[in-house]
Write a protein that binds this DNA or RNA. Structure first.
Lengths: 256, 256
DNA sequence: CTCATATTCCACAGAGCTATGGATAACAGA
DNA sequence: TCTGTTATCCATAGCTCTGTGGAATATGAG
C-alpha cells in the first residue's frame, strides 16, 4: 500500500482518513460501532450481541481502537469498550443518513422485513416534547436495559422489546405510546409499535433514536428505570442514578 | 463474506452500510470523492488530479458508482463524474471532522507540512459576511479555475494558488485578503495566505471551504470569473454565467 | 502461589482487493 | 466506413484482510 508516496503529505492525509474508513468497511464493525454508540459494553457482550466469536470480536475491536474510534476502560478482569466521543456517533449517523438517502436497498430491506416498519409516519422531536408536556403520551424506550441506563430520554420508561408482550399490562391503555430505539435504521421501535397496534393500542415511533436526540442537544437522563410497574404516567420523574461513564461533551455543536 | 447470514435482515442492513464504507477504505478513493465534492470532472481529469493511471482511476470510480456515491453524465466521448447529492459531501465532511477530532496525526501532518497552516486563526463565516458587506476585504478563491466556476462564494475572485504569485499585482494592497479552498484539510488557502503574508499583505484563511459554506445554506454562485484584472473590489458582482449541472437541493437541512 | 476468568496475541489458510497492461466499447469527425 | 479519443472490461500476480483455534497475558479470588 505505498502509493508512490512522493513525500507529498497530501497523500499522507488521505491515508489517515482511510484509517477511519477501514473501520466501516466491515459490516460487523459497523454493527459494533452502532452498539457502542448506545452504551459501553464488555468484549463478551459485544461478541454476543453481534453474533461473533470472542477472538473475532476482539480483533475487530483492535482495528477500531487503532483508528481511535473506540476507547477502553478496565474493570477487574473485564474490558469495557465505548465510542470515543460524540464525533464518532455523528459519523455513524452521517453514514446511516447517506445510506438511507442513496441506497434504495436500505428502504427495501426495512420495508420487507420491518413489519412494514418504514411505512408509518413518525413523531417529530418537537411534537414529542409538546405532547409529553401535556401528559398525553407515554414515552417508551424499547432498547435493552443496559442501553436505557446508559442514557435515555428524560421521563421515558424502559420496556425492552423482548419483554413488551409480557409487561403490556403495565401500560395505561388510554395513553398513546411513542416508542424509540437506536435510530432510523433500528427495528426495535417499529416492531414494538406493530405489536402494540396489534393489541389495539395507539402507538407511533419517534422520528429517530437516542443518538440523534443527544446530538440535537436535548437532555439525556442516566440510570435505571425505578418504576416497578403499573401507571404509565411519567412526567419527567428524575430517576437518575448516575453510575455511568459520562460522555465527553454535553453541547450540541454543529460541525464546528 | 458470508457472515452466517441467518436471513436476519439486520445483517443485510449492515452489509449495505458497508457498501459505502468500502468507498472510503482506500485513500485514493477518498481523494477522488473530495475532488468530486468540489466539481464534476472527466475520468482523465480525475486520474490526473489524483496521480493515478487511467484504468486504475476508472476502476476506483466503478467502486464508487456501485455504492451510488457518484453519478455520471456523458458529453461526447467523455464521461463526467460528480458526487451524487449533497449527502455525499456531508458524509465526507463528517469523515474529515472525525479525523481531525480523533487523529492527532492529522493535525501533525497539517502543521508539519502546511507552512504552519493550522497555526493561524481563521475567519468565521459570519465575520466574513460582515466585512464583505463593509467592503473591507477581498474574498479569494484559490482553488483551480474549474472548481471556482462549478460554484463559489458570491463576489469571490478566482485566483488559483498556482497563479497567485504571478497575478499578485491584481490585488489591491490595502485590502485584507480572505482566502478559501476546499475545506479545513485543504492546504491551498493556507499556502496562499502564507505567500501573501510573505509579501507584506494582510491575509487570513476562511474557517472552512466551499462545501461547508454550501451546506450552511449560504448562497453559491456559478460561472467563470469575468474580472480581467486590477481593482480587487468585488461587491457581489453577479458574474453568474450558469452553464453547470445544478446540484440537487439548495436547502440547508440538518440531518433530516 | 495457583486457579479461574476475560482478553489479547499469534500463525495460518482461504478469500478478496489493487494495480497494471492489453483488449474492447462508445462516440465524434472526416 | 475508417480513425482517433476516451473510458470500461478483463485476466493476473502480489498483497491484505478475515476467521479460527491455540497460546499467552492480566486480574482477582482462594
Amino acid at each position: 500500500m505505498e502509493y508512490e508516496s512522493k513525500a507529498d503529505g497530501r497523500s499522507d492525509l488521505y491515508e489517515q482518513l482511510a484509517r477511519i474508513g477501514k473501520v466501516v468497511v466491515h459490516p460487523k464493525r459497523i454493527e459494533l460501532l452502532d452498539l457502542l454508540c448506545q452504551a459501553e459494553r464488555s468484549v463478551e457482550a459485544l461478541a454476543e450481541a453481534a453474533g461473533l466469536k470472542l477472538t473475532t470480536a476482539s480483533a475487530h475491536l483492535q482495528v477500531m481502537r487503532q483508528a481511535r474510534l473506540v476507547e477502553t476502560r478496565r474493570e477487574g478482569t473485564r474490558v469495557f469498550y465505548r465510542a470515543a466521543g460524540e464525533e464518532v456517533c455523528r459519523f455513524v449517523g452521517a453514514l446511516n443518513d447517506l445510506a438511507r438517502a442513496r441506497l434504495a436497498e436500505v428502504d427495501q430491506i426495512l420495508r420487507s422485513l420491518g413489519t412494514d416498519a418504514a411505512g408509518t409516519e413518525r413523531v417529530s422531536r418537537d411534537e414529542l416534547l409538546a405532547r409529553v408536556q401535556a401528559g398525553e403520551v407515554v414515552v417508551l424506550d424499547v432498547r435493552p436495559a443496559e442501553e436505557y441506563s446508559a442514557g435515555h430520554i428524560p421521563g421515558a420508561r424502559s420496556l425492552p422489546l423482548e419483554h413488551l408482550e409480557a409487561r403490556l399490562c403495565e401500560l395505561d391503555p388510554d395513553l398513546e405510546v411513542v416508542a424509540y430505539c437506536r435510530g432510523p435504521l433500528c427495528l426495535l421501535a417499529p416492531e414494538a409499535v406493530s405489536l402494540l397496534r396489534g393489541r389495539g393500542r395507539r402507538a407511533r415511533c419517534l422520528e429517530d433514536g437516542l443518538p440523534e436526540w443527544r446530538q440535537a442537544g436535548l437532555p439525556v437522563e442516566e440510570g435505571v428505570d425505578t418504576d416497578g410497574g403499573s401507571s404509565g404516567r411519567n412526567e419527567a420523574r428524575s430517576s437518575l442514578r448516575d453510575r455511568r461513564t459520562p460522555r465527553s461533551s454535553p453541547a450540541v455543536g454543529g460541525r464546528s
